[in-house]
Amino acid sequence: MSAGTRLASDSRADEFVARHAIGDPVVGEALVADDNFSARYDLDRLAGIFSRPTHRLAGFSYVDRILVLNTAKGGVASAWMLHEMAARKRAPLAIVFNSVNPILVQGAAFAGMTMLSGFDVDITSVVPQGARVRLDPRARVLRVLGEGGG
């Protein structure tokens, strides 16, 4: 079994292994979009919602959700902002990316936030909207526990 692949002989169809992971295990509701992420560019951090009108999650609350997105966008501010959002308890529970840039990882490390990235499948296409998911960073595994309503 190699990192970054879907599990084979001992696999479950609802488990996906990441190449990179940081943070503690968490369980929560997934908020999924084939779109990218920057705390500066995309969020109203006071309201706790995606605010960029063109973002596919515009108007959705990200607070305490496990965000499942494509990649990180540019802007170094997210490294501070994840920490600031976590301090006010207005932060995502965790973030999962197909690919990530250093800023979001630095932000996760600083904020104590869980983050996974790097899958052999498009992770935004296999996690159902609203699904309950478990992230285990030590094993680098995302597991879908149950389908969502959305």
Partner: peptide, 15 residues
């Protein structure tokens, strides 16, 4: 170091 206080917030400045 990028560190404007809108990004840091109270929590970042306190840190």
């Amino acid at each position: 170091v990028m560190a404007d206080t809108e990004s840091l917030g109270e929590a970042g400045v306190a840190w």
